[in-house]
Design a binder for these strands. Structure first.
Length: 550
RNA sequence: GCGCCCGUAGCUCAAUUGGAUAGAGUAUCUGACUUCGAAUCAGAGGGUUAUGGGUUCGAGUCCCGUCGGGCGUACCA
């Protein structure tokens, strides 16, 4: 709000100056308070347009800007920054504006109702969700919440790869465990089978439900039964983990179902029609190298079956057909080689591949006792999402993952997460929230009532520390919009941490409740009520809880 | 070899997406509870942002090279 006012003033001055100006300058919080409340690079950006050097232009603008009631001071610094000091009165009004928006503060219509599809996790249904999926879940879900808050119409989708080799191997692995439970000797467990203990549990469930009945089925019938059973249970297990993690999936898409609906044939015919396929070595290839990929890719193998790529192309076409204006795929680092061919296929079919944003979440390196643990689903050596939640809690786990930029490889030290969970920054933020609750409770006990917060109450907030916190809170709407644009929800984690830190400092320095000065107490109580609400808005967007007591 | 990503304090990470003197936590050291919650706060030390160039008013951020690390480079998914 304050920034917008400054922006308008600058624009009106530029209009007066009468040259063709560039309006894409910025208005920022300078990182050093001595430069004032806000600063703008407008003079540097428009130096060429005005045919003046930046400082000269800044001088000219300063003179015109000074005759204005919103600036208490305008100065020029460095290469030509215009620095503004804003009247406290304006900040108090802006704070009142935040107050009036209550728990909707920060909500915008920035996204203009655009339909967005966020596909994330999409883990194979061959085992429980692991720590990598947990990162994707935190990321995708938080992004979803923020986009929704900023006026988009996002949807969370999970693509289930329930067709293909890996599912056959799953069925075979389960069969071995099943026989094992029935007392058969299965010898050495095959290397390429799924080794995790979860299959032993599933086998036990089968034995409990069916006894040894399945042994007498035909092999085909048995494997099919085992496969369906495993897929159903895996889906339940994964859904359950996500549920515990606070993540709801709006739409599950099954590869098997897509195949049944003939998507493979459809894609093949489209691609053939588009004249981008050829036959070689008894296989059918896609000429992706002509559309930006490094080499051509196989669509149909020599044995007549199709690669995973084909239904995936079809799947992406359905995303376009369902009317989404923007597609976000959240993938793991081992999929970066996949981007070019996917985009190539979209181009080949005449869809707009620039609508597809692929976010690669870098890998999670797991450490235990100072050593890196190599994770692999086949070997059964991995930390499940459930274990993670049980160890460090949903809130800490979510915050940990969200707070890292998607592009950073992150190290996850299990020992540290378990042992030092109380030192996790998420507690620092929650503590600020709980602390405010506690102060408000005390005020109530002392019969200091704030009631409905009015502008005149907020006028009691006059010191620099209070103004700093107001400025910080004013940043939220722009921040959220910018996160929706840059797809980096990590910035919200940083933001709310900083806000909590400013509150803790403020608390330490000033008494909120001062029985000698009831008026001031009321102002400050109103103030921390608003701070608390902003913290809550942020934590809600990350699906992190806001305990009143800790 | 080729392609993509990463390299910031001892360690884990930030840095308003190109802004001014690169910041937090942790670890080390020093202070602050008879008090609205010490899961907190104040302070000290810790940096040639891997490295060499370039682009411009201005670079941790963009471009090129080099050196390290990860991943990919399947008729697996």
């Amino acid at each position: 709000m304050v920034k917008l006012k400054i922006y308008k003033k600058i624009i009106s001055v530029l209009d007066d100056l009468g040259f063709e100006y560039n309006d894409s300058f910025s208005i920022e919080l300078p990182n050093n308070k001595k430069f004032g409340d806000y600063s703008s690079n407008v003079a540097m950006v428009n130096s060429k347009n005005s045919k003046m050097n930046p400082r000269k232009l800044a001088e000219t603008m300063k003179k015109r800007l000074e005759k204005n009631d919103i600036f208490s001071e305008v100065t020029i610094a460095g290469p030509g920054f215009l620095n503004f000091k804003i009247s406290h009165r304006l900040f108090q009004k802006a704070l009142y504006d935040i107050e009036k928006q209550k728990e909707h503060y920060g909500r915008t219509d920035y996204g203009k109702g655009k339909k967005i599809l966020i596909e994330f996790i999409s883990a194979n249904p061959t085992g429980p969700l692991n720590i990598v999926s947990a990162r994707a879940a935190s990321y995708g879900d938080t992004l979803y919440r923020i986009m929704k808050y900023t006026g988009y119409q996002p949807m969370r989708e999970f693509y289930i790869n329930d067709a293909g080799n890996q599912v056959d191997i799953l069925a075979e692995s389960l069969e071995l465990r099943y026989r094992e439970k029935l007392g058969e000797s299965i010898g050495e467990f095959p290397l390429d089978a799924y080794h995790g203990d979860y299959l032993k549990d599933l086998a036990q469930e089968l034995v409990d439900a069916e006894g040894s009945k399945l042994i007498h089925f035909s092999e085909k019938g048995r494997l099919s039964k085992l496969k369906n059973f495993a897929l159903t249970r895996m889906h339940e297990i994964q859904t359950n983990s996500l549920d515990k993690f606070g993540v709801k999936i709006d739409s599950w898409i099954s590869e098997k179902t897509l195949r049944k609906q003939g998507i493979v044939e459809e894609v093949m015919s489209y691609l053939t029609e588009a004249n981008v396929t050829y036959e070689k070595d008894e296989a059918i290839w896609f000429e992706s190298s002509k559309i930006g990929d490094e080499k051509d890719r196989v669509l149909m193998k020599a044995d007549g079956t199709f690669t995973y790529f084909v239904p995936d192309i079809g799947y992406h076409i359905t995303k376009f057909q369902r009317g989404f204006e923007k597609l976000i795929d959240v993938l793991g680092p081992d999929h970066h080689g996949y981007i070019a061919r996917l985009k190539a296929s979209i181009e080949a079919l005449k869809y707009d591949s620039s609508k597809l944003d692929i976010v690669i979440l870098q890998q999670v390196n797991l450490f235990e006792n100072g050593e890196q643990v190599k994770m692999s689903k086949r070997s059964g050596k991995f930390i499940t999402m459930d274990e993670l939640i049980a160890d460090v809690g949903k809130d800490a786990a979510r915050y940990f993952f969200i707070s890292r930029k998607s592009s950073s490889h992150l190290n996850f030290d299990l020992e540290l997460a378990r042992k030092k969970s109380a030192e996790n920054p998420v507690y620092y933020i929650q503590y600020a929230y709980a602390r405010i609750s506690s102060i408000l409770k005390k005020a109530k006990k002392e019969k200091i009532k704030i009631g409905k917060i009015s502008l005149s109450v907020l006028e009691g907030l006059n010191n620099d520390d209070e103004i700093e916190i107001i400025k910080k809170m004013l940043e939220l709407p722009n921040l959220l919009n910018s996160i929706s644009e840059s797809l980096e929800p990590s910035r919200l984690a940083t933001y709310v941490y900083e806000l909590a830190a400013e509150f803790h400092k403020y608390y330490q320095k000033y008494s909120i409740i001062d029985s000698e000065n009831i008026e001031l107490s009321k102002s400050r109580l109103a103030f921390i009520t608003i701070i608390q609400r902003v913290i809550k808005i942020c934590l809600n967007l990350m699906a992190i809880s806001t305990p009143e007591k800790m």
